[in-house]
């Protein structure tokens, strides 16, 4: 087990390193002069003289060859230094750290909403014996996935802030202000949960061991909750990493819709002014979330499914 843990940790670190490299190369190699872009990104975007450009080039080390720059920046990153924002001059790590709490707050409310909502929908859809209701419930996710998340947010604002002023439309300040963004963020995530769980529930309910349970005389509730749900939520667990990534990414859009501070604000600002160090930091942060969540899921999996334990103990590969 210890070997397995070490192996998984090494794997996670490998993915992070590769994500860092990918972001570095993507932003460095694609057409466009990063220095010119960054110089133009300063708050007073006046014309930059060639001398100033050369100065900047030297300041950010762009006059050195690529491998040297890469090695230097990777070395800095390992020490927690992700460079400084071109637009604000603040360290990227600090910028991210400041932006994180409101975003975490938002996702922390949205995640349980999504899991409970999506889970309840999947359970209800498979449990009901009413054919029409079942078809309706099963088709809800495919409707939900077709709605642009930002549009859902705007509709909520329109109806629940402007028509019926129940919740504030914008801002970070109050708890009530968290309701609409959290709901907006939860919708696509709930759709994902509902889709995966209902598919896997329908599959499990066809399994012979569910037939065995029925043949024992077990009632529907017992069959669903004691036998089907436990087995069905195992494959659903594997999408938790995707879910976390999706929440983080959608938070960017949702924060924009509701004019909230957070990761979304700094990301869109950074992309707009081509603030490369910040964008790079955000990409690596996204990968970090995904990798950490997947690591947790992988470690929790053997506790839930005993069949994995044996193979986990065996194969590090």
């Amino acid at each position: 087990m210890r070997r397995y843990l070490l192996w998984r940790l090494a794997q996670a670190a490998g993915v992070l390193w590769a994500a860092y490299t990918l972001a570095f190369l993507l932003l460095d190699l694609l057409p466009g002069d990063p220095v010119a872009a960054m110089a133009g990104a300063g708050l007073n975007s006046t014309q930059v003289t060639p001398e100033r450009l050369a100065e900047l080039r030297a300041e950010y080390g762009f006059d050195r060859p690529l491998p040297v720059r890469y090695a230097a920046s990777l070395g800095d990153a390992l020490r927690g230094d992700f460079g400084t924002s071109v637009a604000t001059g603040r360290p990227v790590a600090d910028t991210l750290a400041d932006a994180l709490p409101p975003t975490l707050q938002l996702t922390a409310v949205a995640l349980p909403l999504a899991v409970l909502g999506g889970g309840a929908l999947a359970l209800a859809a498979t449990f009901t014996r009413h054919r029409k209701l079942r078809n309706l419930l099963l088709s809800l996710p495919s409707v939900g996935i077709s709605l642009p998340a930002f549009w859902v947010g705007l509709m909520l604002i329109q109806v629940l802030s402007f028509r019926v002023p129940l919740f504030p439309a914008f801002g970070n300040d109050t708890a009530a202000g968290l309701v609409l963004p959290a709901v907006t963020l939860a919708v696509p995530a709930a759709v994902l949960v509902a889709q995966v769980l209902s598919r896997s529930l329908l599959e499990v309910l066809d399994e012979p061991y569910v037939g065995t349970a029925r043949a024992k005389g077990a009632g529907r509730a017992r069959v669903w909750f004691r036998h089907a749900l436990r087995n069905a939520s195992l494959p659903a667990l594997t999408v938790v990493g995707v879910l976390a990534g999706q929440l983080t990414a959608n938070a960017v859009v949702v924060e924009n819709v509701f004019s909230r501070n957070g990761l979304g604000r700094i990301t869109t600002d950074a992309v707009t002014v081509q603030d490369i160090p910040v964008v790079q930091g955000v990409v690596v942060f996204g990968a970090l979330v995904f990798v950490l969540i997947n690591l947790l899921v992988d470690l929790a999996y053997p506790l839930l499914d005993r069949r994995i334990v044996t193979s986990v103990r065996r194969s590090p590969a």
Partner: peptide
């Protein structure tokens, strides 16, 4: 009582 066909898949794998 029922004895099902395929013992490999007729028992709940997580119980």
């Amino acid at each position: 009582g029922l004895v099902p066909q395929d013992p490999a898949v007729s028992l709940n794998p997580v119980q």
